[in-house]
Design a binder for these strands. Sequence first.
DNA 1: TAGTGCATGTAATGCGTTACATGATTTC
DNA 2: GAAATCATGTAACGCATTACATGCACTA
Lengths: 177, 177
Amino acid sequence: MSANAITPVILGLLAMRPLSGYDIKAVVDRSTRFFWAASYGQIYPELRRLEAEGLVQGEDAPNGGRQRRVYSITPAGRKALVEWLLGRTVTIELRDESLLRLFFADALPKEQALLLLEGRKLGHEQYLAALRAIDARPGQDPEFVDLVLRWGISYNEWGAQWCQQQLDRLRNETKAA
Amino acid sequence: MSANAITPVILGLLAMRPLSGYDIKAVVDRSTRFFWAASYGQIYPELRRLEAEGLVQGEDAPNGGRQRRVYSITPAGRKALVEWLLGRTVTIELRDESLLRLFFADALPKEQALLLLEGRKLGHEQYLAALRAIDARPGQDPEFVDLVLRWGISYNEWGAQWCQQQLDRLRNETKAA
DNA sequence: TAGTGCATGTAATGCGTTACATGATTTC
DNA sequence: GAAATCATGTAACGCATTACATGCACTA
């Protein structure tokens, strides 16, 4: 399997149930997008490539006159998915602009630098609200899908708390000095 | 300032001290790389562009016969940096392959799925070791640079603990069932 | 004198996003 | 009948990484 970034996403989602390219995009936008995004420009060509490799199989399933092609995973596709799941992890990339700002915040007066920390805290809280809205259906999802959602919630709770702690610490230092 | 991804990194680092393109790459590889990477292919062209815009200023500073050009930030560059620092944050992207695996781990037998969680925990612990090695010089760095390093350490501590908690929980559930 | 580190730079490549085009169906 | 949603697909664009090219200086 010569993979690119969405390959495992497609195989992983199709391993749960058959989906069209459109469906895949919609599911990604509600789930993995938080740590792994995807666009049509990747999905459709990749579905065709995976079908040519025999890892997925497409079937025309129009809704009335509206064309629609639904893909299922093949046994070979399942095998490729498991191999990827058990292979060695490489990518743990974090691209966090708010953290970058914090890193350079010494260029600001202390007051304004603390504002950046408050902004970051707010970001975590908003993210948290979005994830909790998704969490409205307990027990609906497969166990590990749910686990990752919990991760997102815990991470943002932790992140907001961390910001608050640092705000308290830095404000005390300022006062003490 | 028409900015791309490394623009603020360059301005931010030059606000601390003058550096060559080579230096910038080296500093990034030891610091921001954990949440914001950079390559020569970005740095050198961008330095020239920023110089043309008057945000940085280069000066030839050869080491013997070895050419070398050191850049400093200009007042206009400092202004642009502060604007970026106070502007609105957008990018909070997480691209975490280990999380993606966890998300699809229902495709594996429970035993192997738990192995993924253990692998993630190990990843956090290794990351932690790398960050603690950097932490060997307390008080050497500017306050907020240090803050971000602390963030990295706390984040990985939290992440490893979270993995352990989930491992305990999932193992108990399996036993109870 | 061979290898490593300092130092700059570009061309090719790969990749993903954005924007656009098309058209049917459902909903208000 | 307009707007939103379903549905597929591609071309252009932007951007960053990789690989390569060059050459000096130090050190083992």
